[in-house]
Amino acid sequence: MTHKIAVVGGTGPQGRGLAYRLAQAGNAITIGSRDAARASEKAEEIAAKIGGPATVIGATNADAVATSDIVLLAVPWEGHAELVTSLRDELRGKTIISCVNPLGFDAAGPYGLTLSESAAEEAQRLVPEAVVVGSFHHVAALSLWKNEGLLSHEDILVCGDDAQAKALVMELAAAVTGKEGIDAGALRLARQLEPLTAVLININKKYKTRAGVAITGIGGHA
């Protein structure tokens, strides 16, 4: 089954990479940005990379969300609450996928911020009429964009409180890895999943690689 997906933050590296993978799998993608012209430029870049039939267009954030059934939030933590609040009317009734990582940076490198709630939980609190699922936090933007073929050596972890929405996102994960995502539990587990990204960034820097997450002991997975 294919879906109409808005990628808010689709002009950034992570959003661009996820939009590319989801469009390549046949989904209709709308890149959202504050600047509709910039969103359209990025949409054209993604469509050109796919090189075949694909539906990728650009629009303002509000228009992208309003015309889609699923909304992927791939935006920086700074300004997250303000952005979600500004889109509250358009987000009502949607399935929201949050891959937002609240990270801090200092001389010692990135680290997870100590917060009372995760970015995914914040989005759910701000738009209670939507259903929020946390996922796609740990796939490197460069891997999404530059690697040829599916990232079958990695797993996509999915957390949420709505079983149907979580199953939907686990299905979408196959666009990236070629296999269903891993059910990682309730939405509150995003508090652990989001800061884990800082660990992977540090590993990448140390070993000059693009590390991912792989779960062992589950049939059909690494």
Rank of each mutant, 00 (worst) to 15 (best):
V176M: 07
K146E: 09
E148T: 13
D155L: 11
D162R: 06
R92N: 11
H137A: 02
G160C: 04
I182W: 07
G160R: 01
D106V: 04
L144R: 00
D183A: 07
T114N: 10
V56N: 03
L168V: 09
T55A: 11
A190E: 06
G109H: 05
C159S: 15
R188S: 15
L196S: 08
D89Q: 10
L151H: 00
P195F: 02
H137W: 03
G185I: 08
S98E: 04
W145I: 03
G112R: 01
A140C: 08
T55F: 15
H137R: 05
H80Q: 13
R88V: 10
V169G: 03
S118M: 07
Q164M: 14
Y111H: 12
V100E: 03
G104Y: 12
E121P: 06
A141V: 00
L196M: 13
G178L: 10
K166E: 08
L72P: 02
V100C: 02
A108G: 10
G112K: 01
G149I: 01
V176W: 03
G134E: 14
F136E: 01
E129F: 08
T55D: 15
V75R: 05
Y111G: 00
D183S: 06
S152P: 07
V158Q: 02
V56T: 08
L193W: 06
Q164V: 12
V56L: 06
L72G: 01
L196H: 11
A59E: 14
S152T: 15
Y111L: 02
C159I: 07
L87W: 05
Y111C: 00
S68D: 15
A64V: 14
L189N: 12
A167V: 11
T114D: 15
P195H: 05
D69P: 07
P110N: 09
K94E: 15
L103C: 08
F105T: 13
L115G: 00
V176Q: 03
V158C: 02
V133D: 01
V132R: 04
N61Y: 12
Q124K: 09
L115N: 00
S116V: 13
L187P: 00
G104N: 12
V176F: 04
G185E: 08
G58E: 05
P128Q: 02
A54L: 07
R88W: 15
D155V: 08
A174S: 14
V75Y: 02
A107P: 12
M170S: 12
N61E: 12
V131M: 11
A66I: 14
D63K: 13
V127H: 05
G109K: 03
E194Y: 00
G134D: 15
L193V: 09
D69Y: 09
L142K: 13
V65P: 06
L103K: 03
A173H: 03
D183L: 05
S135Y: 00
